[in-house]
């Protein structure tokens, strides 16, 4: 469940929000809102992937442990 949410967040941020950010003003960090939004999506995606990476690694580690004790 956590994995699904973390996977969907970047898509909702970058694709799902387009109808709501289609405007030039306000300029954020000098960029039109329409451009700033996907740029802000980069750190958002990084955080999601970073957490996902941790989860997947733990899963693989647990799998190996389980395999070893059989």
């Amino acid at each position: 469940m956590v994995k699904i949410v973390l996977t969907l967040i970047p898509f909702i941020w970058i694709i799902g929000c387009v109808p709501f950010i289609n405007q030039v003003k306000p300029l954020v960090l000098g960029l039109p809102l329409l451009a700033f939004w996907p740029v802000a999506g980069i750190p958002v995606t990084f955080i999601c992937l970073y957490l996902l990476y941790g989860i997947v690694q733990k899963e693989e580690h647990d799998d190996k442990e389980a395999g070893g004790t059989k």
Binding site: P10, N22, P32, A35, V39, I42
Partner: peptide, 20 residues
């Protein structure tokens, strides 16, 4: 102009797909 900004988003999402 504006439509160009799609380019800022697609690779970011592509890496999420690639991750899996």
């Amino acid at each position: 102009g504006g439509p160009t900004f799609y380019i800022l988003g697609y690779c970011t999402l592509a890496y999420v797909v690639g991750f899996y």
